[in-house]
Amino acid sequence: MLEPGLAALRGLPADELARRRARVRVLVLTGLGLNCEAETAEAFRRVGARPDLVHLLDLLGGHAEHPLASYHVVAFAGGFGFGDHLGAGAVYANKIRFRLYDQLLEFIAGGGLALGICNGFQMMTRLGMVPGFDGDYRSPLATVAPNDRLGYWDCWIRLAADPLSPCVWTRGIETLELPTRHGEGKFLTATPEVMRRLEQDHQVALRYVDERGEPTERWPANPNGSPGGVAGVCDPTGRLFGLMPHPDAYLYPFQHPQWFRMRDAERPAEGGGLAIFRNGVDAAALAQGG
């Protein structure tokens, strides 16, 4: 069941809904080794929002056309920021921490949303945007470590969303199939206490599940060995969300690996990844009001 506000928004006449969504401005970070910016922007476009690709160096150097504060959503796209040379997302996150973080914290404090996919999730974790307990977005309490089976791995997996999670990005999603593509995806916390709190507060919005739908730590259903099958984590507000799998690579129904085996009736109407983007955009639209 969708919460009433979201249900009401989606119940609006089509043109009104489109107008509300088109007011949502999304900043998609690019440059310095990121490489999923085009499909991430396309995803936001397909659900009706207005994405801008902004090079991180323009943001740092004050050359961006619009200030960060004028956006409603910041998307940290996937890729290999600086080649992941000092660990996934480390050098890129470092640049943000030392040269942009005050602005970003203001953006968050102002109600902004953030989505981190793969490398973007790794950066958000490295920065401390998630878990972000008690409004502290500066303390990295978790990390995304190398996969138990060493090396990058590309395969499709099944995810289940926590219906009780505050995460605005996973509203209405029960299960979801997506590709994962990473070498460092094992979510570890600094202490067991951090993990307990994440669980207790339903901040683990997405988990890898097996054929029976149960969270799994077994390869290949869980490609990295993440404890408890953790695949995506949000902050306590649910507005900041990062995940290892790639909703941005499932924008069209025929990208599902079984699409060519499905009968017409079984075929999905749209790419499964779009639901996540639509949720974020709608949450941003609701936050702006009419």
């Binding site: 999923c36 499909e39 995803a43 996937g78 590309d154």
Partner: peptide, 15 residues
């Protein structure tokens, strides 16, 4: 082969 990404760019259809 699966150590190498075949889906980045979000344009892959028959993998």
């Amino acid at each position: 082969a699966r150590h190498y990404d075949h889906e980045v760019k979000g344009l892959t259809v028959v993998k």
